[in-house]
Computed example of a mutant assay.
Amino acid sequence: MTRNDLMAERLKAVQQRIARACEQAGRSPDSVTLLPVSKTFPVPCVQQAMELGLHRFAENRMQDLRDKSQALAIHRLDWVMIGHLQTNKVREAAHYASEVQSLDRLALAQALQQRLLLEERQLDVLIQVKTSREPTKHGVAVDQLMEFADQLSDFSQLRVQGLMTIAEHHADEQRVRACFAQLRDLRDRLQARGHTNITRLSMGMSGDLELAIAEGATEVRVGSAIFGERL
Rank of each mutant, 00 (worst) to 15 (best):
M1T: 08
D5C: 03
R10T: 08
L11E: 11
A13N: 03
Q15N: 06
I18E: 03
A19L: 04
C22L: 12
E23F: 05
A25Y: 04
A25M: 04
G26E: 10
P36R: 00
S38P: 14
S38I: 06
V43G: 08
C45P: 03
V46G: 09
Q47R: 10
Q48L: 03
A49S: 02
M50A: 02
H55W: 11
F57Y: 07
R61H: 12
Q63R: 11
D64G: 15
D67W: 07
K68G: 02
K68S: 01
Q70Y: 04
Q70M: 06
A73W: 00
I74G: 06
I74M: 07
H75T: 07
R76K: 14
L77A: 03
L77V: 14
I82T: 13
V90K: 00
A94N: 02
A94I: 00
H95G: 00
Y96R: 03
A97K: 01
A97C: 12
S98M: 05
R105Q: 12
L108G: 09
A111I: 08
R115L: 11
L116W: 06
L117Y: 01
E119F: 12
E120H: 12
L123Q: 15
L126N: 04
I127W: 04
I127V: 13
Q128A: 10
V129S: 01
K130A: 12
S132M: 03
P135I: 12
K137F: 05
G139M: 04
A141Q: 15
V142M: 07
L145A: 11
L145N: 07
F148D: 04
D150W: 14
L152F: 03
D154R: 13
V160Q: 03
Q161R: 15
Q161M: 08
M164G: 02
T165I: 01
E168M: 09
D172W: 01
E173R: 06
Q174F: 11
R175M: 12
A178P: 14
C179I: 02
F180W: 05
L183R: 01
D185A: 15
D185I: 14
L186W: 05
Q191P: 09
A192G: 02
A192H: 07
T196Y: 10
T199L: 08
T199C: 12
T199I: 05
L201R: 12
S202Y: 10
M203S: 13
G204K: 13
M205N: 06
G207C: 09
D208I: 05
A214E: 14
A217W: 10
T218V: 03
E219H: 05
R221Q: 08
R221Y: 11
R221V: 14
V222K: 14
G228I: 06
E229L: 11
E229Y: 08
